[in-house]
């Protein structure tokens, strides 16, 4: 199977007159059609920047300064702004955490949805409206015909997120990048959204990058997962394998600290310290100040290397220690 999306050593930096600050570096991903990849990390780990870098949505002073984003074999970074606009929203769509940042509060849903269709395809108003209605139906919005003429504020939070997903689906994209789309939603509503997305990826062969801080969301949804820490991929592999036997001390610590993995009422196993800020990265492995197995070796940067069927960036992988 050829990869639909292949990212090679992607690097994004903030470039100012005072110097450069690296936001993400050495990001490598591969995604086939219909495949779901989870991109997991805590705040400041660079997971959203990765999503935006793929979409070419990075704004100054930040810029993508290295690597390739191969979408169906073509490097998106070499495209002109005009060319990338015909891809963005059409072949690659994005869903954001807050649907109100996608939706215009003063326009009706149908206006906004038809605008997307007309930006990429010359079809009649009627056909565009029908497509919008079908997309709303697909994400489980009841009576889509009537809801088309509603305004965003007339929807609940979960429904708004469905509308945002429906907009992403309008052009039947090959790839959807979803940035924390269920984080602000309630548990039961989150489950509804996850079930829609899961069905879509399966039925339509849409590839999906699901950015989240929540490992448990990824567990049931994604086949592959990349764990990010401080702007780099710490560990990448098959979800089932990686969650059952995390090898990077960070992933291991993260899983061990979940309340579900600890005895009720006992102290949780915690990772000490806090995530470093991008302006003040530790030397070598960015995790070493918080890592229990750090040695002198960790002061030089580890590379992302294949270890037992996964990619790992660590000199001292957790070998037998299962987290649970």
């Amino acid at each position: 199977m050829t990869a639909m999306l292949e990212i090679r050593s992607l690097k994004t930096e903030v470039v100012t007159s005072e110097g450069r600050v690296t936001l993400i570096d050495d990001i490598n991903l591969e995604l086939a059609a219909g495949e779901v990849m989870g991109l997991v990390g805590e705040s400041g780990s660079g997971k959203s920047v990765t999503g935006l870098s793929i979409m070419g949505l990075i704004d100054k002073p930040a810029q993508v300064t290295g690597g390739q984003v191969l979408f169906k074999g073509k490097d998106l970074r070499n495209l002109s702004e005009r060319e990338i606009r015909s891809v963005r929203g059409n072949r690659i769509a994005m869903i954001f955490q807050d649907p109100m940042s996608t939706l215009n509060p003063v326009l009706r849903i149908d206006t906004q949805m038809m605008e997307v269709v007309h930006a990429h395809e010359k079809i009649s108003k009627q056909a565009a409206r029908e497509r919008a209605r079908d997309a709303l139906g697909m994400v489980g919005i009841p009576s889509p015909e009537e809801r088309l003429s509603a305004y965003p504020h007339q929807f609940s939070g979960g429904m708004r997120q469905r509308v945002a997903i429906a907009i992403a689906l309008l052009m039947s994209p090959d790839l959807i990048i979803a940035d924390e789309p269920t984080t602000a939603l309630d548990v039961t509503i989150q489950a509804q959204i996850l079930s829609i997305v899961q069905k879509l990826a399966r039925d339509k062969g849409t590839a999906l990058i699901w950015i989240t801080h929540d490992l448990s969301v990824v567990a049931g949804l994604a086949e592959k997962v990349s764990v990010m820490y401080a702007g780099r991929i710490a560990e990448q592999g098959k979800t089932a394998d990686l969650l059952r036997r995390p090898m990077h001390p960070y992933t291991n610590g993260l899983i061990a600290s979940l309340p579900a993995h600890n005895q009720r009422g006992s102290r949780l196993k915690q990772i000490s310290g806090t995530t470093p800020s991008v302006a003040n990265m530790p030397k070598g492995c960015a995790f070493h100040p918080r890592c229990a197995s750090a040695t002198q070796l960790c002061l030089s940067p580890p590379q992302l290397e294949p270890v037992e069927g996964r990619l790992l960036r660590c000199f001292h992988p957790v070998m037998e220690g299962a987290s649970s």
Partner: peptide
């Protein structure tokens, strides 16, 4: 519906 870390591909039924 509580998402669990049980790394089993499962169908979300809402």
């Amino acid at each position: 519906e509580r998402p669990s870390l049980d790394p089993v591909q499962r169908s979300f039924s809402a």
